[in-house]
Structures are given as structure tokens and as C-alpha cells.
Design a protein around this nucleic acid. Structure first.
Lengths: 198, 198
DNA sequence: GACGCAATACAGACCTGTATGTATGGTATC
DNA sequence: GATACCATACATACAGGTCTGTATTGCGTC
């Protein structure tokens, strides 16, 4: 036995933080950030309010952490999918539109968290807004990379148009039937790619 | 003189209501609905709080009235533009994308009010949510009418894709340069129309 | 006198953030 | 090994402010 560290307290330390963030993510996404008070987060997470404030400083910082986590989850999925189509940009884009379309069709889908938080907080210097803006820029950058690999004539333009489609899917989920989004997105993307070739 | 009505009080009555709604629209849109209390609306409008509650019942109803007004304004512009291209659906769509692109590029643009309110209020039976959902359905219906007039092969599909583009433009404004949206929208729409012809 | 208006105060709930007290478990010193 | 110390946890109460919505009072106008 190499020093029975066991880190029981350290584990608890990280566990508490993780539990708070987990709970906050669920509540913030499902109910909206402004509708959820820290008391509710604390109660649902089963932690002390002091723990929340020790780990996250302010509610605004907790909101930023929420968006950071969503951002990481999103790009995690993106990269996992991208890894399966490293040699075929068209297939990769199709695969992305597939899982994005599936995601926005889920029953409890309530829009893109980044967009929702941006709608709730007008102050552009809010810590969470910075995360949201970076997320959207990242999206456009990654689409530009795919467009470049596709060898189209105007990759920047195509990336901008694909951004419109995807962000549009995020907010239009409520008026689409489940399963409607993916084919709509894919066929639109194909048309835009074709047009961007000439 | 046929009875000097002059409607001084009626005028005042309607005036008070109009001033409240006007003020609420500005504040709700610029700061977000949940961030603005009725006290602030009352103060900025220069009216009594009792007047606000007499005319609108609850804050939720005032929010719904806000969205109704935005809805009417939006379709007012839409119809004014549509009237200039009654005989040419392609030109009409181009004109719509023109003013929409211009609108989302304005300095104080903060997204589509309907989408923003939907992000702030998760309850789908909220009076304002009903207005928002109806607005988005209306949008898709009007686009379907244009698509039908264009004589494309799949007007429903095209309408859905154009909805994605337009809603995407509403929420993507923050990452676009002013003047970038209109050409992006127009060229994308042209590509989708061409693809939808076959 | 009836009504709409403004102004103010209030009720009751909620909010964020802090302060206080107590339990627990790891760690260093005796 | 036992004991003191420290960090973190939970629980609770509180401060100070804001929220929605109502009640009260007084003024001007029909």
C-alpha cells in the first residue's frame, strides 16, 4: 500500500463543487438563470450556502461556470464526432448536423444555453456573456475550418451561412416537429455548399 | 358645434395606457423583462402604479402586450414591404431579407423580442409565450406563402430553411459585423431557392 | 358625486451575500 | 498513540435590497 492517502476530504471538496455545478446547470437550463435563486441551488444540491460562495464567489461566476461547462460539453461532442470523419469534411459536417438536429428535437430542449443567457443579461461585460460570445465565435471558426477543407470558393461566407442555420435551429426548435430539424439542416447545408463551390 | 366633446379624459385614458406600453417596450427590450420591475416602468412612464395595474392587470399581461406590439410592428413592416412587390415573390423575399438584415445590424439591436422572452420564461402557458409561439408560426406560414409563389418543388421545406436563416440572423447579430447579415442572408436564400427548384 | 389619475405606503415574498455556530476529519506536534 | 489545530462541511439567521400587487389619500375633471 503506497501511503493510504484516500483523499477523503479532498474528494469531498471536489465532490461538493461538482454537485453544486451539476445542480446549477440543470436548474439554470430548465428554469432560466434569473428564475433560479442560490437558495434553490443550495437546497437541491444538498450543500451549505457558504460552500457555494466559497467555490464560486458570486452567482454571476456560477452562471459563467454553467456556460463554461455547457461549452466544454458541446465541443466535447463536436470533437468526438469530428474524430470519426477526419478525412472527409463533408461527412463530418453531415454528422454534426445530425447530432445537433437530434439534440434540438429532444423533449426537454429549451434552446442554446449561451443564447438564452445572452438574452437574460444585457450587460456585455457580464462574466457569462464573455463565455457565450467566445462560444459563438468558436462555432464560426470551426465551421470556417470545415469550409476550408471542403475547398469551396468562399469559405468565410459559407461558415457564416452555416452559423445562421445552426443558431436558427437552436431557437426554432419549438416550432419544429421532432426529427424535422436534421434533414432540413442537411439539405440546406448541401445546397449552400454547392452554391459556394462556384 | 356638435357637443364639444374634445375627449380630454378619454385621450388621457388612452394616453396613459399608451405611455405605459411604450415605456415598457423600451425597457423590456433593452434590459430584459425579468430585470425590469414595474416600479421602474411606472417611474420612467411618469404614471401611477395603480394605472399600470388597471390597464394591464398583471406584469405577465404587460409582457404579453409588449410582445403583441412588437409582433404588430414586425408584420406592419413586413406588409408594407410586401406591398411593394406584390407581383414578384423573389423580389419580395429579397426585400424582406434586406430590412431584416439591416435591423439586426443596428447598434442597439438585442435580438428578437419573441425569442428573448421565450428564453426568459420556461412556462409554455405563459401569456407572453403564446404570443411568441404564434409569431414564429406566422413567420413560417408567410414564408411558405412566398415559397409557394416562387413555384419551387418543396415549398414547405424551403420555408423551414428560410425560417432557420432568419431566426439564426436574429440571434447571431452579436458575432456579425454591421452590414454583413443582409448579403449573407440573400445569397443563402438564393442558393436554397435554386436547390428547391429541382 | 363618480371616476381616473398621481403619490405614497404597505404587505408579503423573494433575492444575494454575510455572519455565526457546530460537527467532522485530516495533519502536525507532543 | 493522544491531542491541538485547521480547513471545510452543514445549518441557520440575518442584513439590506427588490419584487409584485394592493390599499389609502388627495386632486382635478366630467
Amino acid at each position: 500500500m503506497p501511503k493510504s492517502v484516500e483523499t477523503p476530504n479532498l474528494q469531498s471538496h471536489a465532490e461538493v463543487k461538482a454537485r453544486i455545478l451539476e445542480t446549477a446547470c440543470t436548474l439554470f437550463y430548465q428554469c432560466g438563470v434569473r428564475a433560479v435563486g442560490v437558495d434553490l441551488v443550495v437546497e437541491k444540491a444538498g450543500v451549505a450556502k457558504t460552500s457555494l460562495y466559497r467555490h464560486f464567489g458570486t452567482k454571476d461566476d456560477l452562471v459563467a461556470a454553467f456556460l463554461k461547462r455547457e461549452d466544454e460539453d458541446f465541443w466535447g461532442t463536436w470533437e468526438r464526432v469530428a474524430g470519426q470523419h477526419a478525412d472527409d469534411a463533408a461527412a463530418e459536417l453531415d454528422a454534426h448536423l445530425e447530432w445537433i438536429g437530434e439534440r434540438v428535437g429532444r423533449p426537454n430542449y429549451r434552446g442554446c444555453p449561451q443564447i438564452n443567457v445572452a438574452a437574460e443579461f444585457p450587460e456585455t461585460d457580464h462574466p457569462a456573456r464573455k463565455v457565450a460570445t467566445a462560444h459563438k465565435r468558436q462555432m464560426r471558426k470551426r465551421l470556417r475550418d470545415i469550409a476550408a477543407r471542403l475547398g469551396v470558393a468562399r469559405p468565410d461566407e459559407l461558415a457564416g451561412q452555416l452559423s445562421l442555420l445552426i443558431n436558427g435551429a437552436f431557437v426554432s426548435a419549438q416550432i419544429f416537429e421532432p426529427g424535422e430539424a436534421t434533414p432540413l439542416l442537411r439539405r440546406a447545408a448541401h445546397a449552400l455548399i454547392e452554391a459556394s463551390r462556384t
